[in-house]
Amino acid sequence: MGLIDRKLPDNVLTTTVDSVINYCRKGSIWPVTFGLACCAIEMMACGAAKYDLDRMGIIFRATPRQSDLMLVAGTVTRKMAPVVRKVYLQMPEPKWVIAIGSCATSGGIYNTYSTVQGVDEVIPVDFYVPGCPPRPEAFFDAITALQKKIMTEKVVRK
């Protein structure tokens, strides 16, 4: 639901407010720490000194209530899937999801009885990052793609 909700056509006012809000949002993406497996270590490496996610305004939050991005980094198992979904539902709108690594994308090499074949079976995914685990550069590619996507969102008039 937008603020005006289809009462006005697109005009200079609504689009300018949109772009201001989107600009702020894209510069302060706060992901929920949701390291599941190997990819989480590369996610930590992204947050550390060399790659430094902070410079893009990304600060990991430990609670879904303060987050607007979920980085699913690792294998989602059948036991974990309800938890993933619960954490996702606890996040306030607007929210995005990036599936990191082959396991979160498609199950990867683990085609077994206990593994969910891709996290998109339980929650909607915006971006998929291939790799096992993906390089930090691949993370950044996904983040910049997400920033582009955020800039196209309509906030005032949905």
């Binding site: 198992t77 938890v83 077994t112």
Partner: peptide, 27 residues
């Protein structure tokens, strides 16, 4: 919560093919 069935998978793979599975134990 991270049970991926590595030991069971290994039973269906040749000895070489198990090596990538071992990578992802203690990652």
């Amino acid at each position: 919560f991270l049970h991926r069935g590595t030991e069971k998978l290994a039973e269906n793979r040749t000895y070489h093919q198990v090596i990538p599975l071992t990578d992802r134990l203690d990652y």
